[in-house]
């Protein structure tokens, strides 16, 4: 028997959790995009040092599981650094740095997919590196990057659930809490899954639509 009242009676907790999930999704996607833009671009300047710095960052955060990153930032980093860190900052930093690494790769691939002739033509007009990027390369690259960026952002929203492991009160954390005193894991976790579906299916459909549009503009 599915007891809906388990959900309705504890709805304020689910609602609070959902808000935390959405909040962290929004800020970590935004910060991740900024990091990705910077890290992606410094790898394209042609400077060896900057490229290596970018690569090291990307490989570290792409190859360590996000859960390990979050636990490390929250529990290990304070010991190394000799300072304390709130769960807000640990969750925010972990998610953003992780997202930034993937966004940087998407950006780099997007920019590198643009024909060399575009760089030649804009350089021949006398454009600086910044002008070339801003006026010619990035506007074309962004169109191609929309589908992978949307896909990565959807993954990012799902990944926020890992913050429950460092006790950030997101949707999953609140659900575990409700489950711990109602002893109704079936209702509770089914609800969590349903909420993510309602949230993400429209986004997935939207990203597929964008993919078609970006194919058309090419």
């Amino acid at each position: 028997m599915f007891h809906f009242d388990v959900i309705t009676q504890n709805w304020p907790l689910f609602w609070a959790g959902l808000q935390v999930t959405l909040f962290y999704s929004a800020i970590s996607i935004s910060a991740g995009l900024v990091i990705g833009l910077v890290v992606g671009l410094i790898q394209l300047t042609g400077s060896r040092t900057l490229t290596i710095i970018g690569r090291v960052y990307v490989e570290i955060f792409r190859n360590i599981p996000l859960l390990v990153i979050l636990l490390w930032i929250y529990y290990a980093f304070p010991i190394f650094a000799g300072l304390s860190i709130t769960k807000f900052w640990a969750g925010f930093a972990g998610l953003s740095l992780y997202a930034g690494a993937f966004y940087a790769e998407i950006l780099r691939a997007g920019v590198q997919s643009i024909d060399r002739g575009q760089t030649d033509a804009s350089t021949a007009l006398g454009m600086t590196y910044g002008q070339r990027m801003r006026r010619v390369i990035l506007p074309q690259a962004f169109r191609r990057m929309i589908p992978p960026l949307a896909g990565q952002s959807i993954i990012q929203i799902k990944n926020t659930t890992l913050m429950s492991m460092i006790t950030v009160p997101d949707l999953l954390y609140q659900a575990s809490y409700v489950s711990s005193f109602t002893y109704r894991p079936m209702e509770v976790y089914t609800m969590v899954g349903a909420m993510f579906l309602v949230l993400l299916v429209p986004l997935t459909l939207l990203s597929r639509r964008l993919e078609k549009v970006s194919e058309r503009v090419k």
Binding site: G117, D120, A121, A124, L125, G126, V136, Q140, R143, K218
Partner: peptide
Amino acid sequence: IRAQTGMVFQQFNLFPH
């Protein structure tokens, strides 16, 4: 200086956007 020379390429290389 580059701006003092105009270049026309085999593949046109117009900005498609």
